[in-house]
Design a protein around this nucleic acid. Sequence first.
DNA 1: TCGGATATTTCGAAGGATCGGAATATCCGC
DNA 2: GCGGATATTCCGATCCTTCGAAATATCCGA
Lengths: 157, 157
Amino acid sequence: MSSENRSELVDQLMSAMRNQAGRGLMLHGAVAERFGLNFTDLKCLDLLRSEPELTAGRIAAATGLSTSAVTTVLDRLERRGFVERRRAPEDRRKVVVVPTGRHDAEMQELFAEFGDEVMAILRDYDDERLGFLLEVINRLDGAAREATARITAGNRA
Amino acid sequence: MSSENRSELVDQLMSAMRNQAGRGLMLHGAVAERFGLNFTDLKCLDLLRSEPELTAGRIAAATGLSTSAVTTVLDRLERRGFVERRRAPEDRRKVVVVPTGRHDAEMQELFAEFGDEVMAILRDYDDERLGFLLEVINRLDGAAREATARITAGNRA
DNA sequence: TCGGATATTTCGAAGGATCGGAATATCCGC
DNA sequence: GCGGATATTCCGATCCTTCGAAATATCCGA
């Protein structure tokens, strides 16, 4: 019956989402390898996308790394041309990490086909559908954010 | 107008998906830390979910690791109780990697709240909506799979 | 059954990541 | 301006991961 289909549907969705999470891991790994980065570096770069005025200390707090470890991460990222260090004008002890965008072109090229495919997929649906999709993704993201915080907190304890 | 909204919608979706990818990275990292695993280990565990009769050699091929590196990965996973090694009956040189499920309960507990939240979100939509969601996720997963393969291939070259 | 091929493991070495603590530079309140 | 607090970096040490090459076990064809 309907409730039968329903639970099956939910199961399939859960499974699909897990698959996708794993796939994302692989994709990130492949990208990281291409640019000579490791997962830790990627995590830091990712922070950077959401926090524009990111400082070294913030990275340490957010990732759970020691401050000295963050220094070497930044060394790596800077050496590879992903970020620059700038002293904060209002507090010159702080180091703000600024993305250089130097690899944007290469990154774009790397994801060109993928982006096209995603675009092609989205084209198949109308605005109303996409609005729904956006809503769900954002809600799921919120849940994932909380889960991450919870687990991280548990790890420290 | 509509085309204005449309492109904005698409942009938001792309951005949301990127966010989600980053979030997944964080979540995986937190889980890995909890269980004393690293990202490489996770990748291998993930392979296991999609390929039940996974052998050590297959892992090496799929991850790009050396066979000796895979041995140590399996040592780790086995020591922590995630997998068991079994000799393949039809070719006793091969080692098939079997998940033990020993951490399933703990994992379940770790994701309990998250799972509940996801369920709660899904409950807000009817079957037709969820069917659409499943379709999109699967299509996106296919695209991501191809992208990963492409990038990995490029890395080897 | 012998010998080359295949799957995995062991071994030794090398490189990388991370840590804690000392050092340096800067800020801020007194 | 001094002294304690804060942000980051430097240093030395350790642990972990990975690798290549050699060793081991097994398979398969001649």
